[in-house]
Design a protein around this nucleic acid. Structure first.
Lengths: 209, 209
DNA sequence: GATTTTCTGTACCGTACGGTACGGTTCGGT
DNA sequence: ACCGAACCGTACCGTACGGTACAGAAAATC
């Protein structure tokens, strides 16, 4: 974990292949993600797949890693922000989080990683976990710290506070969607859920109290 | 969904077979759950498996259904309870919930259902969902309503309140464990997490405010 | 333009698994 | 004692998939 031995950089061609494979995964689950199907869909040969990614597990890892590298940096926490600015930033975080986890791609990747979790130490879960945290967790934790130092929030442990915020936002929606139950509600409900979660979070960690 | 066409009651023998199969699933993931392996472990023939459960999907559904039928009723919400009694009940719920979702069996079943979610409308997810709600959700919602009518809680929608409580208790622990990252922390931490969650919940929904 | 590398397409191999068939055995009913 | 149902163990079949081999095309290098 110290030296980053792998070079997660691929050729343009290889990236295109991985994107095609992800497409297949999204619309057919892991069962549909056979090497033959990928080769056919991506217009390459199976031999090239094995040459580039080693074996099927390596291919899966490459798909996840590739997607994990697509993290968009997102807005920096403004140097000086108002209390309403903080609230707005938190609500945007909540909206982004809900949108992300309810997206087809996210669901497919999480299902894949969870399916592989019991066997084969390729550590897809770890990759997803890390990229997820990197995508939103880290910078939101920073946002919370900022809110603390500015006196808007009152939290002893930003990690803990972030975890609480996550729980208030996501509730049991993620597992519900992973299980295939409900297609995420409308954008209207999503907005409402985000506002409610942030209101509750501020009620818990707001400076007043 | 109206007439319950299936009879989820099995022979003692069949139940024993399903338990053995569940054992295999827990310690090897879905990959290890082949019909041959089940027959060998349970000391029955493949032909009997197919005779009893139809096909492999039916077998999986039977495993999940069987486990779902093992719900233990749990304590009734006492007719008249003190405010501390309510808090204690909520903490017990939180502890139970955390223990359950971090158990090997729960993780294995959830992984199985999530893996099947993208294909084959056997609806394992729906079964798990329903049994999970039945196990704790429903009666805890009743508990919350009781708390409302007794004036200890102040909530407009018990369902909403339950959902919030769930989020505060579980946070991102469930997805983390499903992804294979962390073995759930010690019983000490679990107790602490439960207390924290309930404290926060009461802070949000307590009558004072 | 010749040579070497990289790629595609297809064919192939071994294996593992879902599902079925069948002979032999146990066991309850009469 | 006989019969039939249920069942075990094993063998078997078809197929699907991971992985490899190979022949020819494309592209790159000189």
């Amino acid at each position: 974990m110290s030296t980053e031995p792998e070079q997660p950089d691929f050729t343009d061609r290889q990236r295109a292949v991985l994107d095609k494979a992800l497409e297949l995964l999204v619309e057919g689950g892991e069962k549909a993600l056979t090497t033959a199907a990928i080769a056919r869909a991506a217009g390459c040969s199976k031999e090239s797949l094995y040459k580039w990614f080693g074996d099927r597990d390596g291919l899966l890892a490459a798909i996840v890693t590739r997607q994990a590298s697509k993290v968009i940096p997102g807005a920096d926490p403004a140097a000086n922000m108002s209390e309403d600015g903080l609230r707005a930033a938190l609500e945007e975080f909540a909206r982004n989080l809900l949108e992300t986890i309810s997206g087809d791609v996210s669901l497919a990747l999480n299902r894949l990683a969870i399916g592989q979790a019991s066997k084969s130490e390729t550590g897809l879960g770890a990759i997803l976990e890390k990229s997820g945290r990197a995508r939103i967790g880290r910078q939101t934790t920073a946002l919370l710290e900022k809110g603390c130092t500015l006196g808007y929030l009152h939290c002893e442990d930003p990690q803990e506070a972030y975890s609480t915020l996550y729980g208030l936002v996501v509730r049991d929606q993620h597992i519900r969607m992973l299980l295939g139950g409900t297609a995420q509600a409308s954008a209207k409900d999503l907005e409402l859920a985000a506002q409610t979660a942030v209101k509750q979070f501020i009620q818990l960690y707001g400076a007043r109290n």
